[in-house]
Amino acid sequence: NQASVVANQLIPIQTALTLVMMRSEVVTPVGIPAEDIPRLVSMQVNRAVPLGTTLMPDMVKGYA
């Protein structure tokens, strides 16, 4: 099973992502693949992302 990127904390809207905000976890449905974590650093979320939420491509500006 492929690991996805999951929020390690509440990430407020417009926040630039850092490594400490994300973790990898095998979840359903599958979100952004964990191997993309380095690419996500400094990208902004376009909505508030609660703790434990799987990051989906449409939540990160410039990802999809």
Score class of each variant (00 low, 15 high):
1 N>T: 15
1 N>A: 15
2 Q>H: 14
2 Q>E: 13
2 Q>A: 12
2 Q>C: 08
2 Q>D: 13
3 A>N: 07
3 A>C: 12
3 A>Y: 13
4 S>A: 03
4 S>T: 03
5 V>M: 02
5 V>I: 14
5 V>R: 00
5 V>L: 03
5 V>G: 02
5 V>T: 06
5 V>S: 03
6 V>K: 03
6 V>L: 09
7 A>P: 00
7 A>Q: 02
8 N>D: 10
8 N>A: 15
8 N>M: 07
9 Q>G: 04
9 Q>K: 15
9 Q>I: 11
9 Q>W: 08
9 Q>R: 14
9 Q>M: 14
9 Q>H: 08
10 L>Q: 11
10 L>Y: 15
11 I>Q: 02
11 I>G: 01
11 I>V: 06
11 I>A: 01
12 P>E: 09
12 P>M: 07
12 P>A: 08
12 P>C: 06
12 P>T: 07
12 P>I: 04
13 I>L: 14
13 I>Q: 15
13 I>R: 10
13 I>T: 12
13 I>G: 15
14 Q>M: 11
14 Q>W: 15
14 Q>H: 15
15 T>G: 05
15 T>N: 04
15 T>Y: 07
15 T>A: 10
15 T>C: 08
16 A>N: 07
16 A>M: 12
16 A>R: 11
16 A>H: 15
16 A>C: 14
17 L>T: 01
17 L>I: 09
17 L>D: 03
18 T>Y: 04
18 T>C: 05
18 T>Q: 09
18 T>P: 01
18 T>M: 07
18 T>H: 05
18 T>E: 07
18 T>V: 06
20 V>I: 13
20 V>T: 15
20 V>L: 14
20 V>P: 11
20 V>G: 11
21 M>R: 00
21 M>C: 04
21 M>T: 00
22 M>Y: 03
22 M>A: 01
22 M>W: 03
22 M>P: 00
22 M>T: 00
23 R>T: 06
23 R>Q: 04
24 S>K: 14
24 S>Y: 10
25 E>G: 11
25 E>C: 08
25 E>M: 10
25 E>S: 11
26 V>G: 04
26 V>D: 10
26 V>Q: 10
26 V>R: 06
27 V>I: 06
27 V>P: 01
27 V>Y: 02
27 V>C: 07
28 T>S: 15
28 T>Q: 10
28 T>F: 11
29 P>W: 04
29 P>H: 04
29 P>T: 05
29 P>D: 05
30 V>I: 14
30 V>T: 11
30 V>A: 09
30 V>C: 11
30 V>W: 11
30 V>N: 11
30 V>K: 08
30 V>G: 09
30 V>Y: 14
30 V>P: 11
30 V>R: 07
31 G>Y: 04
31 G>L: 01
31 G>R: 00
32 I>V: 08
32 I>H: 02
32 I>Q: 01
32 I>S: 00
32 I>L: 04
32 I>K: 01
33 P>V: 08
33 P>T: 08
34 A>H: 07
34 A>R: 05
34 A>C: 11
34 A>T: 07
34 A>W: 08
35 E>I: 12
35 E>T: 11
35 E>M: 10
36 D>L: 10
36 D>Y: 12
37 I>T: 06
37 I>K: 05
37 I>W: 04
37 I>A: 07
38 P>I: 08
38 P>R: 10
39 R>P: 01
39 R>E: 06
39 R>K: 15
39 R>G: 07
40 L>W: 03
40 L>P: 00
40 L>K: 00
40 L>N: 00
40 L>Q: 00
40 L>G: 01
40 L>E: 01
40 L>C: 03
41 V>F: 05
41 V>D: 01
42 S>I: 04
42 S>K: 10
42 S>V: 04
42 S>H: 10
43 M>I: 04
43 M>V: 04
43 M>Q: 07
44 Q>P: 07
44 Q>N: 09
44 Q>W: 12
44 Q>V: 14
44 Q>R: 14
44 Q>Y: 15
44 Q>I: 11
45 V>H: 02
45 V>K: 00
45 V>W: 02
46 N>W: 11
46 N>T: 14
46 N>C: 09
46 N>H: 11
46 N>M: 14
47 R>C: 10
47 R>T: 13
47 R>H: 09
47 R>D: 07
47 R>P: 02
48 A>P: 11
48 A>V: 12
48 A>N: 15
48 A>S: 12
48 A>D: 14
49 V>T: 05
50 P>G: 10
50 P>D: 15
50 P>V: 07
51 L>Y: 14
51 L>C: 13
51 L>D: 14
51 L>S: 14
52 G>R: 03
52 G>S: 05
52 G>Q: 02
53 T>L: 12
53 T>C: 09
53 T>Q: 12
54 T>K: 04
54 T>M: 04
54 T>H: 02
55 L>E: 00
55 L>Q: 00
55 L>M: 15
55 L>A: 02
56 M>P: 02
56 M>C: 07
57 P>N: 05
57 P>F: 07
58 D>C: 15
58 D>V: 08
58 D>F: 14
59 M>N: 06
60 V>M: 05
60 V>R: 02
60 V>P: 00
60 V>G: 01
61 K>Y: 14
61 K>E: 09
61 K>M: 12
61 K>H: 14
62 G>I: 04
62 G>S: 08
62 G>V: 04
62 G>M: 10
63 Y>R: 02
63 Y>M: 05
64 A>R: 09
64 A>Y: 06
64 A>D: 08
64 A>N: 11
